[in-house]
Design a protein around this nucleic acid. Structure first.
Length: 584
DNA sequence: GAAGTCACG
DNA sequence: ACGTACGTGACTTCA
């Protein structure tokens, strides 16, 4: 063991891979460790079931894992870091994660090791199912014969090591080394820390909510069955459509889905809700049922038995634009828009009486980015003055003084401002507002006349994509758009909207990622007890140790606003409270 | 496992 | 004349 560690310490770069008993890092026990630092070669250390013995063996490897000078190569290193953390090992030194590297090389592809091996090494690795089976028959890696463990684990480490060499070349070719080294790789550690920390959930409060929701759901159910003249499954779109549009014939020409069913989607039903009480009831039922099943009843089941807290898993290689995603549970789509939904936010609370939740939101970051990138002076000026951007837009497009902009005008301007980022059409806008197609078209035309450089910028992005096959963010994160020159106008249109949207959404993602790294560094440097817990695209949430509140507020605001310099200032709004709703 | 729906930014 | 706003994840139904 000593000799092996000595050997490891002589390498500039080592790939390692953990074999464990669970995909959940908080539950996973180590079964073995594979290493490779030379193509086609590797080693496997089998670890005993006795956790104390395993810890002793690991302590012999600490010098390697904690060595700042040795690059650690791996596939999805966030997982391995989290597992090793539970054994008291903090992995140090640069991380080269092949999954992350490939995400930068081509974000729209998949990034699992078998796909990567097949694509880049022309080799299909042993599938894990051949060892542990799948579904009900699945066994633990611990029960797999040692020779099979070795073959599988060493192969993975070897392939990963080989892929790393290729990906370094590819990253350099695209000019994405810094994006990897200075952003995605450091972020992996930040995310691991946030996930291990988890957030406190008021389960008793959610259980009370569940009871009151249930009462209201049952009442709505009763009313719906009465109006329908029969009982049926309201949650079945098929049955619901047959009742509303087949049996009751509430409209003459019901909209259908692509499979020929009656559509019962929200935007279809909400048109009819005023005329038919049953439809209003169905919408209310759906809303409450969604809250109950997806959040109120599901979240308490996600509280870890190990920590008593909720630990999401941030996916760093899923969203094609560079955003994170969150799952098991998804903490990036907790309700906030409706009154009933807001109640759920109250269940996210500080870790104890000595802490408060702090929420820090970028204000209008995507609009600021499009203003800066397009160099649209009218919009830039509005942001520099700290104006209400939607009101300022309304004043321009409706040609009225700022102070006489009506609520309705502001609301329409807001819809267009958001729509622009997505590449809205007159049809889309008229669907989102009470405006007709013609009114929508006029509004969009006036919008571009008011902000002429915006339109020029959007065209330039499409042209760039046509010529280069990709678009990029402020930090050079690429998204390839293979359909940008397609003959099919629908397919091409979608690619053109992506050409505009991806750099905007992706640049916002770049900026908050830089901010997260800066904030974490500041928290570490200043040796604070405050923890960063959540990221929701343009928002960060913290468990703040009360005595640190003023220091942390200043630090977070400054780190976020200065994460990246645009020709438009970035603005961060802070909120503090006894729960996530209050912190908004 | 696909389809439909709906929660968020 | 065409179809129609970007990016996600989770739940339920149903074949």
């Amino acid at each position: 063991m000593k000799l092996f560690t000595q050997k490891l310490l002589q390498q500039p770069q080592v790939c390692f891979d953990t074999e464990t008993t669970s995909l959940d890092p908080l539950e996973a026990n180590l079964v073995g460790l594979a290493f490779s630092w030379e193509a086609h070669k590797g080693f496997y250390i089998s670890l005993p079931e006795d956790q104390e013995e395993t810890s002793e063996i690991l302590s012999e490897l600490k010098a390697f894992f904690q060595h700042e000078g040795i690059e650690k190569v791996g596939q999805n290193l966030k997982y391995d870091l989290k597992v090793l953390h539970r054994y008291g090992i903090e992995v140090k030194g640069p991380c080269f994660d092949t999954m992350l590297a490939h995400y930068l090389i081509n974000p729209d592809m998949r990034h699992n090791l078998s796909v990567l091996s097949e694509t880049y090494l022309n080799y299909t690795p042993i599938a894990i199912e051949t060892l542990i089976g799948k579904g009900k028959q699945k066994i633990s890696m611990r029960e797999v014969a040692l020779d099979q463990q070795v073959a599988y684990a060493v192969e993975d480490a070897d392939l990963c090591f080989q892929l790393a060499q290729q990906f370094k070349t590819e990253l350099a070719a695209a000019g994405n080394e810094s994006l990897f080294v200075d952003m995605e790789a450091p972020l992996l550690r930040v995310l691991a820390g946030m996930e291990l920390e988890g957030i406190n959930l008021d389960v008793a409060f959610l259980n009370e909510l569940s009871v009151t929701l249930d009462k209201d759901i049952l009442q709505l159910e009763k009313d719906i069955y009465e109006a329908a003249g029969e009982t049926f499954n309201i949650a079945s779109p098929k049955q619901l459509g047959d009742i509303l549009f087949g049996k009751m014939q509430l409209v003459e020409k019901p909209k259908k889905t692509k499979t020929g069913q009656y559509s019962t989607a929200e935007d279809v039903l909400s048109y009819l809700a005023k005329e038919h009480k049953i439809i209003a009831d169905v919408l209310a039922y759906r809303g409450l049922a969604k809250l109950k099943s997806t959040y109120v009843d599901a979240l308490p089941l996600q509280v870890s038995a190990q920590t008593g807290r909720v630990h999401t898993d941030y996916m760093q290689t899923v969203a094609a634009t560079g955003r994170l995603s969150s799952n098991n549970p998804n903490l990036q789509n907790i309700p906030i828009r409706t009154e009933r939904g807001k109640q759920i936010r109250k269940a996210f609370i500080p870790r104890d009486q000595e802490h408060l939740l702090l929420a820090a939101d970028y204000s209008q970051i995507e609009l600021r980015i499009i203003a800066a990138l397009s160099e649209e002076d009218n919009m830039i000026a509005a942001f520099k003055e700290g104006a209400d951007i939607h009101a300022a837009t309304a004043a321009k497009v409706f040609n009225v003084p700022l102070e006489s902009v009506s609520r309705e005008q502001r609301s329409h301007a807001k819809t267009v401002n958001f729509g622009i980022i997505y590449g809205v059409s007159a049809f889309g806008l008229s669907n989102q507002t009470d405006l007709s197609r013609a009114e929508s078209k006029a509004l969009i035309d006036t919008y571009y006349e008011s902000y002429p450089k915006l339109k020029a910028y959007m065209n330039s992005q499409v042209n760039f994509a046509r010529e280069n096959g990709y678009v990029e963010t402020v930090l050079g994160r690429r998204r390839y758009l293979k359909d940008i020159n397609a003959n099919n106008a629908i397919v091409r249109g979608a690619a053109e909207r992506n050409a505009v949207n991806a750099p905007i959404q992706g640049s916002a993602a770049d900026i908050i990622k830089l901010a997260m790294i800066a904030v974490q560094k500041a928290l570490d440097d200043q040796k604070l007890r405050t923890k960063m817990l959540l990221q929701v695209h343009d928002e960060l949430v913290f468990d703040v140790y009360k005595p640190e509140l003023e220091q942390v507020k200043a630090l977070v605001k400054s780190a976020m606003e200065n994460a990246f310099t645009l020709t438009v200032p970035l603005d961060v709004e802070l909120g503090v409270g006894e729960n996530w709703l209050e912190a908004h």
